[in-house]
Simulated scan of single mutants.
Amino acid sequence: MAGHSKWKNIQHRKGAQDAKRGKIFTKLAKEITVAARLGGGDLESNARLRTAVLKARANSMPRDNIERAIKKGTGELEAEQYVEKVYEGYGPGGVAVMVECLTDNINRTVADVRHAFTKFGGNLGTEGSVGYMFHKKGTIVYQRSKIQDFDKVFEAALEAGADDVKDEDDVVEIICAPDAFNELKETLDRMGLEADVAEIMRVPENYSAIDSDKAASMQKLIDWLEDNDDVQNVYHNAEMPE
């Protein structure tokens, strides 16, 4: 049940992202710039940058945009100074929500995030209030129909550092530690597999069931947050009704 719920959550988020392609490019560029500023512009030695660029390519971000974002991070081009912030809170029905942001104005961002939680029946919490419910995991998901030889993929994934390979709900989901993500993704790419989702995300330990009314409010909260330019990712543990 949890796997199905997680895949539905991923689909909701991916669908929202696909509908806002230009906005996604802006957010991807921010992450690339920050990654390059913190670890340099070399993809081989900067794992965070490599992950960000992989995600950008998976979202069909133009190469020029990627290169420009890297140059902003390394100081070759002028750029805003972004700060990373993670906000924690409770959505409708008391579900746990984590909001990852990159912002050049913390006061604006926290006011916007607090407003969203209040507007849709939740409340912004303190640091650590729900973070313990989530763990960072590399997550790679394929539609089951893309996997012709599951055993071969299973063995290759484990050899490349995967912690778990799940075959359920018409998808194959591969989980790994964050530091194993890039090598694992590259191994699977060499097998000719095109991932539907490939990123490091915050995965909840457990899911919390909510009714359809609360789910509708929860989706509005997610949509509102994801429409905010400062918000990079929204994670939650709501088990959305069918």
Results as ranks from 00 to 15, higher is better:
C101Y: 12
K55V: 13
I66W: 05
Q143R: 10
D179N: 12
R108L: 14
I175E: 05
V97S: 04
A157I: 07
G121T: 10
M98N: 00
V141P: 02
L184G: 08
S145E: 15
R108T: 14
I70R: 00
I106H: 06
E80Q: 11
E88V: 03
T139E: 15
D151N: 12
D163E: 11
D64P: 00
A162M: 05
D164E: 15
Q81L: 12
V153H: 05
D170V: 03
N59L: 08
F181A: 03
I70W: 04
N107A: 11
V53A: 01
Y132N: 09
N65W: 08
D189P: 05
N105C: 08
F150S: 06
V95N: 06
D151L: 15
G131R: 01
I174P: 01
H115V: 04
G94N: 09
L77E: 15
V172F: 03
G131A: 03
I66C: 03
D112L: 12
R108Q: 15
T51G: 04
K137C: 02
L158N: 11
I147E: 04
A47W: 02
M61W: 01
V153Y: 05
V53C: 01
D104M: 05
N59V: 01
K119E: 15
Q148D: 14
E159C: 00
Q81E: 15
D151W: 11
V172W: 03
K85R: 13
A56T: 05
A52E: 11
L158V: 04
I66K: 00
V95W: 07
R50V: 01
R63P: 03
G122L: 13
E100Q: 08
S60H: 05
N107M: 12
A160M: 07
D64S: 09
H135D: 12
E127F: 12
G94T: 09
G128W: 07
Y132H: 12
K166N: 07
A52P: 07
M98Q: 08
I106D: 14
R50Q: 06
V172D: 02
D151S: 13
N105I: 07
T109E: 14
D104L: 02
A156M: 11
I66Y: 04
K152P: 01
N123R: 10
A177D: 15
K85D: 13
E168C: 00
C176W: 02
E155A: 09
N182H: 03
H115I: 04
E127Y: 11
V86M: 10
R48P: 00
T109R: 02
L158W: 06
G121D: 14
D112H: 09
K136E: 15
V130P: 02
D167Y: 13
K136I: 02
K152H: 10
R57D: 03
V141F: 01
R68L: 14
F134N: 07
I66N: 04
G73H: 06
N65Q: 11
R48D: 15
E127S: 09
V141T: 05
